[in-house]
Amino acid sequence: MDLLGWFKSKKAPTANTARDRLMMVVAIQRDQDGRRTTTGNGGAVSYLPALREELLAVVRKYVSVPDSAVKVDVQKEAGLEVLEMNITLPERT
């Protein structure tokens, strides 16, 4: 019996799963309520900075890019919200 393994065996942390699931349901809920997904001080969509950070981390798994390489924005056009993402890859040398 792998005693050491038994002692070490740990379930994967679930707090991150909880956070991601919540962000999703809350975004949908706010949409249905006709609320904007805004922070208290208005304007920006609350999850955008986090989304940008995570995208940047994913891109950096493959290429090294500066912070400014990932741009995320929400545009409102005729009652439609469009999530716009721009990822600039470095030029090949």
Binding site: R19, L22, M23, V26, T38, T39, S46, Y47, A50
Partner: peptide, 10 residues
């Protein structure tokens, strides 16, 4: 921080 990020109130 997670809860604050989601609810976005002080």
């Amino acid at each position: 921080k997670d809860v604050q990020d989601i609810l976005a109130i002080p």
